[in-house]
Structures are given as C-alpha cells and as structure tokens.
C-alpha cells in the first residue's frame, strides 16, 4: 500500500509539474521542472524496497551478525537507489541552475520576459514561423529593437517571398 501511495504521489507531482511546465512564463517553467525533479526522485526511490528507518550503515560486525546478505537486505534500506538519487539530485540541480542562468541572460539581453515561443516571435530567430503580430503588442520594448532587428535580418519577414526564393 505504501507503494501505491508513493505511486499516487509521484503521479500527482508529475501532473502538477506538467501543468506548470505548459504554462506561459519562465518562472513557471523552472518551477515545473523542479516538481518533475521531485517526482522523479520519489519514483526512483520507489524502485528500491522501502524500509522504514534503517539507514544503510553497516559495519563489519553487523555483517557477521546478520549472516547472509539476504538478511541484511531485509533489515536495511536499499542503498543503491539512494546513491542513484543522490547523483540524480545533483545533476538536476546543475541543470536547473543552468536554465535559470539562461533565463537570466535572456532577460539581460532582451528586456522582455516572454516564453520562448513568444519571445522568438519578437526576436524571431529560434522561430522563423511564429506570428509577427506579437511584435506590435510590445511597443515598450522598442529600445531593444535594433538588436532584435539585427536578428530579424537573419531570417525572413515575408513568408510568401521566401517560398518564392525557395523555388528559385
């Protein structure tokens, strides 16, 4: 039953994380990824056998006393998932930190805080195909426009003409 509870919890964390990740706004993206991390760690934890309260601290005498490995395993928590989770926690911390830094950098560059899809419509490099109407909605960001325009030069403004060019 504990396993069922864990599964339920992981499922719910996944659901909440997904909902957040799909929202607009980068803080929500990061928070959603954070929930994912927790969900995955718990899921990994659930792959081992759950043992209440006996940390895997085993010295020589305990081993002798227990007699067999199976007996030890019955008494102590499964150490392998713990090691795996530790690795996973640290790695995902590194990843999250990097993403946060990317967001920071983007904010410093563009002065706008849209989600990639929308920002791409403005800066329009990751996304040549996004609708251009959004550019109109952000007149305040005009002082960054020469930069944005530079990026725009790289890609096309007039899809129809590009089709022509493609045919050429």
């Amino acid at each position: 039953m504990t396993a069922l509870m864990l599964a339920l919890l992981v499922g719910l964390l996944f659901a909440c994380g997904t909902y957040l990740v799909l929202q607009r706004g980068q803080i929500k993206l990061v928070l959603g990824l954070g929930l994912f991390t927790h969900a995955i760690n718990l899921a990994l934890f659930g792959t081992g056998r759950l043992t209440r309260g006996a940390p895997p601290l085993v010295d020589g005498e305990t081993v002798k006393a227990a007699g067999s490995a199976a007996a030890l395993f019955a008494r102590y928590a499964d150490p392998l998932p713990q090691a795996l989770i530790l690795t996973a926690i640290v790695i995902s911390f590194g990843m999250t930190a990097f993403i946060v830094m990317l967001i920071f950098r983007r904010d410093a560059l563009t002065g706008s805080d849209l989600l990639p899809g929308e920002l791409a419509a403005v800066v329009n490099t990751a996304d040549p195909f996004a609708k251009f109407t959004l550019r109109m909605q952000l007149p305040e960001a005009a002082d960054d426009y020469d930069l944005l325009q530079y990026e725009l030069d790289e890609v096309y403004d007039y899809p129809e003409r590009e089709v022509e060019n493609a045919r050429e």
Binding site: M95, R105, R106, P116, V123, T125, E151
Partner: peptide, 17 residues
C-alpha cells in the same frame, strides 16, 4: 550568449531534459 542562442538554447535544454 547572443539572443538567438539563448532562445534556441532554452528550447534545446528543456526538451532535452
């Protein structure tokens, strides 16, 4: 760290994650 790099980068990072 050019804007296009950052924008592409975020997508790259998140989807790969």
């Amino acid at each position: 760290g050019t804007p296009s790099q950052i924008n592409g980068g975020i997508r790259y990072v998140v989807l790969n994650l």
